[in-house]
């Protein structure tokens, strides 16, 4: 029917939207999804809100500004920052090498990048502390040059970096794969140096994906627990992370204090999560708009 060709793009989209309702299962999938999301995700969150709202403001403030807890915020933020910056660079390097070059062992490298997501964090924790302790393979070499990693904040950075290695690689890799070679080849043939072409042509397309990866890595590092507690040494005021502070309050059965600190941590994680999603949405839409 030739008249359908006149349908404008906008109403075409609306038509496509309506035709989706042709498929069965809306009620069933909506029912299962809402039931699950409410019961598994949202209901437990209300428990925390209830517990925290039962505290007076002074009590809450006193708990979350306890000097030892405040020190744990600093340690956690600084180490998570260092770990995600390291992963930004390491991730870019890995993504670049995996997309641009062929070399023996490439498939193995590509596969092993995901190891930190597949390996339980407790296993990562005992492995890293074994490697970096004074008698370990790495620890021996490092202590010879006077660097101590195990039971210091540097150990926390290593544990955080390990558990979030895949984020930057897996966000940058697809963007790098889809980058059209035309602009790059034109710039190179006009005599621009590699460094200049990378900065002016390639990096502008990569950085939004890099920011996403680094932000995901940072979010994950803020909450990490299993991999850290073994290697951190957990010295008060020096190498205690915030998730450990929550865990310790729980072991003392001080649920109110644990909830107060947890609500702060949860707030930060949720803000980060929503920001990353907004950022990705904006960035992806810009890509599709091309």
């Amino acid at each position: 029917m030739s008249t359908t060709a006149n349908v404008s793009a906008a109403s075409g989209r609306r038509f496509a939207g309506r035709s989706k309702r042709v498929l069965p299962g809306f009620g069933l999938s909506l029912g299962i999804s809402l039931f699950f999301v409410s019961l598994v995700l949202l209901l437990p969150l209300t428990g925390l809100v209830l517990e925290t709202s039962g505290m007076s403001w002074d009590q809450f403030w006193f708990t979350v500004t306890d000097p030892r807890v405040v020190e744990s915020y600093k340690v956690t933020l600084l180490t998570a920052f260092a770990a995600s910056i390291f992963n930004g660079l390491f991730g870019l390097l890995l993504a670049w090498v995996l997309v641009r070059y062929d070399f023996p062992g490439k498939r193995l490298v590509d596969a092993v990048v995901d190891l930190p997501f597949a390996l339980p964090t407790a296993v990562a924790g005992i492995t890293l502390v074994t490697l970096f302790s004074e008698s370990g393979w790495y620890g021996q070499l490092l202590s010879a040059v006077g660097i101590e990693v195990a039971f210091t904040p540097v150990g926390i950075v290593i544990a955080m970096a390990f558990t979030s290695i895949p984020f930057v690689v897996r966000t940058v890799q697809p963007v790098l794969e889809e980058l059209s070679p035309a602009d790059e080849e034109a710039a190179v043939s006009l005599g621009a140096t590699d460094g200049r072409v990378f900065r002016k042509v390639i990096f502008p397309s990569l950085w939004p994906a890099m920011v996403t990866g680094v932000a995901l890595s940072f979010t994950r590092s803020l909450g990490e627990f299993g991999a850290i507690i073994f290697i951190a040494g957990n010295t008060p005021y020096v190498s205690e992370v915030t998730s450990l502070m929550i865990f310790m309050r729980l072991q003392e059965y001080d649920y109110a204090a644990a909830s107060a600190i947890a609500s702060l941590v949860l707030l930060v994680s949720l803000v980060l999560l929503f920001s990353i999603n907004l950022w990705q949405g904006r960035y992806l839409r810009r890509l599709e708009g091309h």
Partner: peptide, 12 residues
Amino acid sequence: FAVSPVVAGLLY
């Protein structure tokens, strides 16, 4: 994915 595992346990 965003919530710390310790916080997840605490919620429950």
